[in-house]
Amino acid sequence: MNTIEQDIEKYLNGEMTKEETTVFLKKIDADSGAKRMLELYEEMDTVYDEKNWELIDRNITYKKVEHYENFLKSDSGEKVSEAILKAEHSYFEESRPSKIKQTLLYVGAIAAVFIAGLFLTNQFNNTINGDQLYAEYKNWNVLPSLTLRDGAGDLTNIEKLFRDKRYEESLVLLKAYVSDNDQKINPQILLYLGVTQLELDQNEAAISSFTKLRNSNTLDVPKAHWYLALCYLKLNDLEKAKSELNLLIGSNISFQQNKAKELLEKLN
């Protein structure tokens, strides 16, 4: 095993001092072989991490990427693309119920609405199911990663438990983290805390966590509007959900803008 590999390992594990890092990076810059080796080690770290995905550098045009792109833009590529659209259309048409079945469904649905109408006098204004929209729009993949390279810290454990849907255990660590770092607001932690509380049906506590984020002086304030909107959807409080969505849209940050507009349209 040569020294450069040992250095790369140390560097990737974050075990170098500032001075060592500077010397190491200079050495790497001057040695193309070592640079390639470091790149490969970095690639391995990402490719083999099952929860990650290696996005290649978009500024480099690899021959293969160009080759695939040329095919997709060619006549043959367009032919394939059209065939996929045709197949998709035909498949979803076929999956729809037949006209007779559809008519029966409509008749059944009308009858059901009519019968329901006899019993429900107060609910006419609230035909939108907030809970269903909540399930449709919650997407925890957009939460930023808390993981650090060393892989042993509290934050790493919190994220791992969260991603494994072990919310109760994750909540214990999150609360401990918040109480240990009481003086400083960590927006990412508040996001994880609120979402974990939502998953555990501690809806009021979730609202309180996201409100704390909304009242903070951090850059993530607008994000709190999105998560508060989800909380209110879950609780079927559609007016409050709409108000949070309007605030998010008004904030002009790029976070979930399209989804917020789409959702607001559905609610209106």
Partner: peptide, 27 residues
């Protein structure tokens, strides 16, 4: 992709669809 865009970990530009599929094929 969505996480990288949200957290601005290196700006990931939007590219046209064929390019995006070609990048995904390569990866």
């Amino acid at each position: 992709l969505s996480k990288s865009r949200v957290t601005n970990e290196g700006v990931i530009d939007l590219v046209h669809e064929e390019r995006e599929i070609a990048l995904a094929a390569y990866e």
